[in-house]
Design a binder for these strands. Structure first.
Lengths: 157, 157
DNA sequence: ACAACATGGGTGATACGTCACGTATTCCCC
DNA sequence: GGGGAATACGTGACGTATCACCCATGTTGT
């Protein structure tokens, strides 16, 4: 290879198939997410962020969590959790209690109102996820999707 | 089926495999997007939104487009394009010109500065997409991903 | 005991996405 | 050719995501 060409590594542009796959993923995810958020908003007072936090709380043995636990469970930044939870406190879905074990920390506790909201919204939301996504795919496609996403996630750590 | 049970349709909750696939997709997409945006910001002055618009412009025969064309190409809402483009005008990546054919419309035109920015940033960004995503997948996985996303996109219209 | 560092959490600024709404222009059909 | 519907685009408000910081409390090594 001539020196004039080896000075800068050649760019390996995406092939057409790779372009298509990559762009389709972006388009699909963006629109799917927007549609799910719209349908959730139409049947409840919950935003998509609210829903995620409430699910994370109800997934626990006790319906409460430390801030950093929510961040870990949701894969969110600490700051994002902080903003989200303080909005949810004003809306009444959760409340905060001080943590005696570690006085830097605090507990996020599901309120009765929050439990009612998530239990009312979950069936409809699951139905949306089925109708728009899961039921459109074959079991084989779902399996491939899982292995594929896990591979990518591994390299992201 | 007893009337007491048929009054409300049973909820078809997600199976564990379905849950895993769905949650993995969300996690992967969110983190991948965040990481790509970080790497793009580290090597250029472009946000991810800027990048998308500049690519859409350079993909055209002439480096300019109507607002609604950008919206169609990117799959964005009109309003989103409007906000994004006006930010990009102040940053100097594009400029707007009035459209003589249709006086409601306007042209978004790539500036020299915009062309320079996208040409400088593209190789690095493509390398990021390869390293974090495309090169992690087999050709078969990429094909499955394409058909899968297309199926979902079809039902979203 | 105390310094140095790590961890849990919060805040303000900025950018972004969506909705609801408004205005100007063009299209189309009777 | 006139009037209603559709189209192209913009704007302001609101909720949200991220970054760069900040402080308070814990932990560790000496």
């Amino acid at each position: 290879m001539p020196p004039s060409l080896s000075a800068v590594a050649e760019v390996r542009w995406l092939t057409e198939d790779e372009q298509t796959a990559w762009r389709s993923l972006i388009t699909m995810y963006t629109r799917l997410h927007a549609q799910l958020a719209r349908e959730l908003a139409a049947v409840s007072d919950l935003t998509y962020g609210d829903y995620g936090v409430l699910v994370a709380l109800t997934d626990r043995p006790e319906p409460r969590a430390r801030m950093y636990e929510l961040a870990d469970d949701l894969g969110w930044e600490r700051s994002r959790v902080s903003h989200q939870v303080s909005r949810m406190v004003t809306r009444g879905w959760v409340r905060k209690e001080r943590c005696d074990d570690d006085r830097r920390g605090s507990w996020v506790v599901l309120t009765d109102r929050g439990r009612g909201a998530i239990e009312a919204a979950a069936p409809s939301h699951v139905e949306s996820v089925r109708r728009l996504f899961v039921d459109r795919l074959t079991p084989a496609e779902l399996r491939t999707l899982t292995t594929l996403t896990q591979k990518v996630l591994t390299t992201l750590d």
